[in-house]
Amino acid sequence: MHKSILTILLIMFSFFSKGQSDLETKFSEANSAMNLRNMYQRIVWNMQPTNQYLFDQTKGEVKYTVEENDYEVIATPKFLGTFNLDDKTFLWADKNPSINKRLNDKVDSFRKTLPKKYQKDKFKSSTESNTNLLSLFSFQLNSNGFDSKRQDNTIIYYSLLDIKIFKDGNEILVIEPTNHTIQLEVSENIGLIKKFHKEKLEINKQYNEQKISSSEAFKKIEKVHLKYWLNEDPYFFPSLSWPCGFDEKLILEWKEFKIDDNRLFVMYTTDLGWTSESYAYEIDLNVSGDKRIINEY
């Protein structure tokens, strides 16, 4: 009898572990893909958390004002849900009467693909779990990217479908919902960025350990910067920081990719402890040697 119970428990444990493992794998794959799509939006129209935004549920759109580029960007959103920061609960968008039905019509079918703990109208959650859900939701919709915005004590999570970019009132670009990047199987420039980071990390470490003064550190780090950057604009000169995001141990993933106008990028995703952030360097295709970085995002 005891043997039978133990066998059943082992089978159940194996079943739930596999289910959880499968979901974690899906989250990981979706995060990897959607980080790349969000980076594309950052490159093309400077998608940033600091952009002003306005939801218009009647029109079914979210409008971003991108002051740096003098753009107005209008996207079609699909809402996933909201997170209450007071009681740490997530509420699905289709169970929220304040959200227009045309903006939450994809949620029900998505929720049904998830384990039962996620199928309640409202459940305890965290911002990390919410981002995983949003990433998977967006990936399954083949979205252009995703975003989240805080309003008072609530965070709103939504996916971005069609995106239209306007300048001076004229539509200059329409971005259809899909992947617009070409990931390269052979990564020839990731090693370049790793060398760049390693040298910057060493200077930051020396400064943090008070082995060199701030003036000496800035001279050293500027010299390293100009060793790798073709674009010598002082706007891009690095600062000193500790903990340092250039530490290889903090980097979760590297990618090398092109976009449709044959521009080349190296992207890396860093684990900051409470969240992860992705960054990218643009590489000049027509230059050889180490000095070929022309931009960063």
Rank of each mutant, 00 (worst) to 15 (best):
F79Y: 14
K200I: 12
I43P: 05
I203M: 04
F79H: 14
I165H: 04
P243A: 08
W254V: 03
L36P: 03
K3V: 04
I175F: 14
S17W: 07
H225K: 11
I175C: 11
L6W: 11
F90M: 01
K223R: 12
S125F: 00
I182Y: 14
N208C: 03
W242C: 05
F236V: 02
L114P: 01
L250I: 03
T58Q: 13
E67M: 09
Q52T: 12
N100S: 14
T181S: 12
T275M: 13
I8C: 06
N100V: 10
G169N: 10
N179L: 07
L192S: 09
K227Q: 15
L272Q: 11
M267I: 03
T25L: 14
Q183S: 12
K101D: 10
L201K: 14
D22I: 05
K124N: 01
F15H: 10
I182N: 14
M39S: 08
D261N: 15
L252R: 04
E209C: 01
S126I: 01
D271C: 06
I43D: 05
D260L: 13
T154Q: 03
F16N: 03
K149H: 07
G289L: 06
L136A: 01
E232L: 13
A75F: 01
V266R: 06
F237H: 14
T178S: 11
Y279G: 09
S135L: 05
I251L: 09
H2V: 12
F90S: 00
Q140M: 12
N153Y: 09
L173Q: 15
G169D: 09
Y268A: 03
P97N: 02
K258V: 02
A33G: 06
R102V: 13
T127G: 09
S241T: 13
K116Y: 14
L160A: 05
R37D: 04
S213W: 02
D121Y: 02
S239D: 12
E222C: 07
V44W: 09
N69W: 09
V44S: 08
G169H: 08
D261F: 13
N35Y: 11
L230P: 06
E128S: 08
K88F: 00
S129A: 15
E216S: 08
T275G: 10
R111C: 10
L226W: 05
I163W: 11
T89C: 00
M47L: 14
D284S: 10
D87T: 02
Q119N: 03
K116L: 15
N231P: 04
V174C: 11
F265H: 03
D86H: 06
S138K: 02
W242G: 02
T127K: 11
Y40N: 01
L9I: 12
F236N: 05
Q140N: 13
E188Q: 09
H225D: 08
Q140K: 15
S21E: 12
N31E: 13
F196T: 03
T25M: 13
E209H: 04
P234D: 03
E296S: 15
Q119G: 02
F123K: 00
F55M: 15
D86W: 04
K194C: 07
K220W: 08
T25G: 06
K227M: 13
S21N: 11
F166N: 09
